[in-house]
Design a protein around this nucleic acid. Structure first.
Lengths: 172, 172
DNA sequence: GGGAGATGCTTAACATGTTAAGTGAATGCG
DNA sequence: CGCATTCACTTAACATGTTAAGCATCTCCC
């Protein structure tokens, strides 16, 4: 439906096909990207209806399970970089979905926690979110889903310590 | 090495633990995100050395395999949204890595192709890139890698047509 | 053949990813 | 104590993701 046949109605054909590489669309990064997008596409509309982005939702979920965390620890949990988290927390705080207060022992640290309003918002989103997740599980198969997650974890572990660049290993 | 023990030196503990949900860090989107990040972390430094971002590299690779494509088709291939692609093409064109000319038959369409310089740049990046991919394959295992990719493809297919929102199905 | 609607692409606006620099508060050590 | 370092975060700057408009061009159909 999408691709027509060749369209040779063009003059000079510029350079191409010089560099042999794996078929681009089958590279691992692309597979992972497409799979994740296919999954997130299911959730985004529902989140959007509640005025939340994917990352904001991640943060609220991470906060819902604990009393309070430091920003750095939250960044690890929600898998966000510091600067992104910093901005998002500023916004979530302005919307009264989270609360922040500096730690007593160390003035540098700030402890973040979800607010009552935040909990309320989560309660209104969670059912739909869980339903979507259930449907995905149903379609793909619970067994296969578990297998997939296991493989993803293995992949992650097998690449740990192969840090692309400044690894700052002991003895450096 | 990273997490200390509990630090109960805090007064009022705000609302939390009200909304029961799956363990956040084990959700499928997070697994996919972390796995992809683990992989991309390997490639980014090399690309960066050559002044390329991940997306720019995707575009060059997509272009290397063909003579010329329309922008929309390229967006599909490189898995980028129109607006992102539009910006990136503007920059790549300014750097003389790609060429663009409007199609004769339809003035709306513009045909994009990689330039001689673009091919040269690819040739300088490809070896390192392939080496990294080979190392990833070695670490994770070629067999398992193929399995993983197969599962990712299945996941994608099983969610196709479950379009999160405005699906624009016939009869709507 | 002319105007309504579809199409291909770009711009705009806002949120996040990514790297680097900045800031204020702890720490280590002479 | 004093001061260089480290640490926890925040700001800044630039690139992309994401949605909505904008703008030509094309198509279709009366």
């Amino acid at each position: 439906m999408t691709k027509k046949s060749a369209d040779p109605a063009n003059g000079s054909a510029p350079a191409a096909r010089q560099v042999p590489m794996r078929d681009f669309s089958r590279s691992l990064p692309m597979s992972l990207l497409r799979a994740r997008e296919a999954v997130m596409r299911q959730f985004r509309p529902s989140l959007r209806e509640h005025g939340l982005t994917e990352q904001q939702w991640r943060i609220l979920r991470a906060l819902a399970a604990i009393e309070a965390v430091e920003v750095t620890e939250l960044a690890r949990t929600a898998f966000l970089l510091g600067p992104s988290l910093s901005r998002i927390l500023r916004d979530l705080e302005a919307r009264n979905l989270i609360e922040r207060k500096t730690a007593k022992a160390d003035q540098r640290r700030s402890m973040v926690s979800i607010s009552k309003e935040g909990v309320k918002l989560m309660a209104s989103v969670a059912p739909t979110s869980e339903a979507i997740y259930a449907e995905i599980t149903r379609r793909f198969g619970a067994r296969k889903l578990a297998e997939l997650q296991e493989m993803l974890g293995e992949l992650e572990r097998s690449l740990a310590g192969l840090g692309g660049a400044d690894e700052t290993i002991a003895g450096e």
